[in-house]
């Protein structure tokens, strides 16, 4: 395997690892608000890593004389557009959910509650 393939594989598995961390996080955290930390956040990093890996793999043998590789470059830019969309949309959705929870009045978990 070439060096690009190694970089792609490492980035991809890092992304999958952070996705798994997010999933374990929303299972382990004690209350709703801290679950949000694990959910929306590791996902931002994980999607970025995995999608950058895929976009990099798509342009692995770029030849500027071929139309096909320019088309591959376009598809890679499209994959990067997904990342931009995720960066604008995910925090907005997280913020909406958090605000709804606060308005409804779900109590946050606090440290002294455990000592009682």
């Amino acid at each position: 395997m070439s060096i690009v393939s190694w970089v792609v594989a490492v980035l991809l598995f890092l992304g999958v690892f952070f996705f798994a961390i997010g999933a374990i996080g929303i299972l382990r955290f004690p209350d709703f608000y801290s679950r949000l930390h694990a959910a929306g956040k590791c996902d931002a990093l994980a999607s970025t890593l995995a999608l950058v890996a895929i976009a990099l793999f798509n342009v692995r043998d770029f030849d500027w004389t071929l139309f096909q590789s320019w088309d591959n470059l376009r598809v890679s830019l499209k994959i990067l557009l997904i990342i931009l969309f995720v960066y604008v949309a995910t925090p907005a959705a997280t913020h909406a959910i958090t605000k709804a929870a606060f308005i409804v009045g779900i109590e946050p978990w606090e440290k002294r509650k455990r000592n009682r």
Binding site: F18, G25, R28, D31, C42, T48, W109
Partner: peptide
Amino acid sequence: LFYQIVLSSLEITYIVLHPRMLEIIDPRL
């Protein structure tokens, strides 16, 4: 921004995988 996200994601990862997680976190407004 991405650098900051990486730094704090590693911190969250440490918290998630810590066996006694409830002693580390201290949520506050």
